[in-house]
Simulated scan of single mutants.
Amino acid sequence: MKNKLGITAAAILAAVSLAACSNGNNQSSSQSSKTSSSKIVKKNTNKQSAQSSEKEQSSSSSNSSSSSSSQKASSQAPEHDRMGYFTGKLRKALPGMLLPTKDGLGTGSDKLNVRYTSSGDTNTVYYSVGDTAKDFNSDSVKNERPYAVLKEVKNASNAEDIINYSPEQKGLPTKKLDDNTTGTIQGAAGQRYLQWNKDKWSFVIQANSMMKKDPTDRGKEVLALVNQYGVPSTSTHGNLHVTLGDHMGSLNTVIAWQDGKNVYELKAHDTETALKMLNSLK
């Protein structure tokens, strides 16, 4: 009886020992599996992080390149210069003709239109501002009233008649225009004329005396503009003539001079506009 109990106790102890060993092996295997899985997750996380970083760098580089290209394109975009464009066209059509490179306008340059005519030794360029910008020398520009007209007469045999230079006047009432300039005043046929001369140029301001117009104030304004912008150099004589009585589309400023064998005449609706254009003459 004692032997049977001893055998049974020994069997129970052996079974408990085997169960404990099995649990220990299972826990070790589970911990090993968890450690291995953790390593795999960490590797995958690091790989995904690296790929994400590479994508962000690539996207940043792409955006930077796009921005740089946009800025470069913007900086290289040509300015919209209608006067420059038309002047280039005129130089090809009328080689050798002196032309202004500035339109002389305060506003409306974006709708500047230009056309020209050529007949024999005479070339004429018409500058106007329209409701819309039109092509160079478009037929429709003929319907626009020009604000300036530049004419060139080649080999002019009647140069003095075109220029209409007025010699300095003597023995007439005088008007002080500035510290260095004194003009003369005379009346004829219902008109009053203020005149002064400097170098090869004569300057005449004409006013209607019947309308009680006085040319003195305008003369002072014109003199100041001439001092500011200057006048073209002339081979013989030059003349600037302004008629008072502004009205829509009037070409009341006429400037004429001689360049070599050729005579030029610019008519404009505004004296400052005319002098600005001639100041850019090339």
Results as ranks from 00 to 15, higher is better:
residue 94 L to S: 00
residue 132 T to F: 07
residue 239 N to C: 06
residue 196 W to Y: 06
residue 9 A to G: 12
residue 220 K to E: 02
residue 76 Q to I: 06
residue 175 K to T: 05
residue 164 N to S: 13
residue 114 V to E: 01
residue 42 K to V: 10
residue 191 Q to Y: 11
residue 123 N to D: 08
residue 104 G to A: 05
residue 38 S to R: 14
residue 227 N to L: 00
residue 190 G to A: 05
residue 86 F to I: 03
residue 163 I to A: 03
residue 117 T to E: 08
residue 123 N to E: 06
residue 271 T to H: 10
residue 223 L to E: 00
residue 212 K to V: 00
residue 256 A to T: 10
residue 100 P to W: 09
residue 80 H to G: 04
residue 9 A to N: 03
residue 239 N to T: 04
residue 99 L to M: 10
residue 206 Q to P: 00
residue 26 N to W: 13
residue 244 L to N: 05
residue 205 I to S: 02
residue 24 G to F: 03
residue 227 N to P: 05
residue 40 I to A: 14
residue 277 M to R: 03
residue 234 T to A: 15
residue 123 N to R: 03
residue 272 E to N: 14
residue 213 K to A: 00
residue 33 S to E: 12
residue 253 T to I: 12
residue 258 Q to G: 01
residue 258 Q to D: 10
residue 30 S to L: 09
residue 32 S to F: 11
residue 4 K to H: 03
residue 102 K to A: 12
residue 60 S to P: 07
residue 118 S to H: 13
residue 275 L to I: 08
residue 139 D to Y: 04
residue 261 K to L: 14
residue 61 S to Y: 07
residue 57 Q to M: 10
residue 247 H to D: 12
residue 158 N to W: 00
residue 266 L to G: 02
residue 173 P to K: 09
residue 69 S to W: 06
residue 42 K to Y: 07
residue 255 I to P: 05
residue 67 S to V: 14
residue 211 M to Q: 09
residue 149 V to H: 07
residue 80 H to Y: 15
residue 50 A to G: 06
residue 89 K to I: 01
residue 241 H to L: 08
residue 216 T to G: 00
residue 204 V to Y: 04
residue 191 Q to P: 01
residue 241 H to Y: 12
residue 276 K to E: 07
residue 45 T to E: 12
residue 198 K to N: 13
residue 70 S to N: 15
residue 226 V to C: 04
residue 137 N to D: 13
residue 25 N to M: 11
residue 174 T to R: 14
residue 185 I to L: 13
residue 110 D to I: 11
residue 247 H to V: 11
residue 68 S to G: 12
residue 17 S to P: 02
residue 99 L to P: 01
residue 160 E to K: 07
residue 106 G to S: 12
residue 166 S to K: 15
residue 153 V to S: 09
residue 39 K to I: 00
residue 3 N to Y: 15
residue 52 S to V: 09
residue 237 H to A: 11
residue 31 Q to W: 13
residue 211 M to L: 08
residue 268 A to I: 01
residue 241 H to M: 10
residue 134 K to N: 01
residue 74 S to L: 13
residue 234 T to V: 04
residue 230 G to E: 14
residue 39 K to D: 10
residue 138 S to F: 01
residue 237 H to W: 08
residue 195 Q to P: 01
residue 210 M to Q: 09
residue 148 A to K: 07
residue 192 R to W: 00
residue 166 S to T: 08
residue 18 L to I: 11
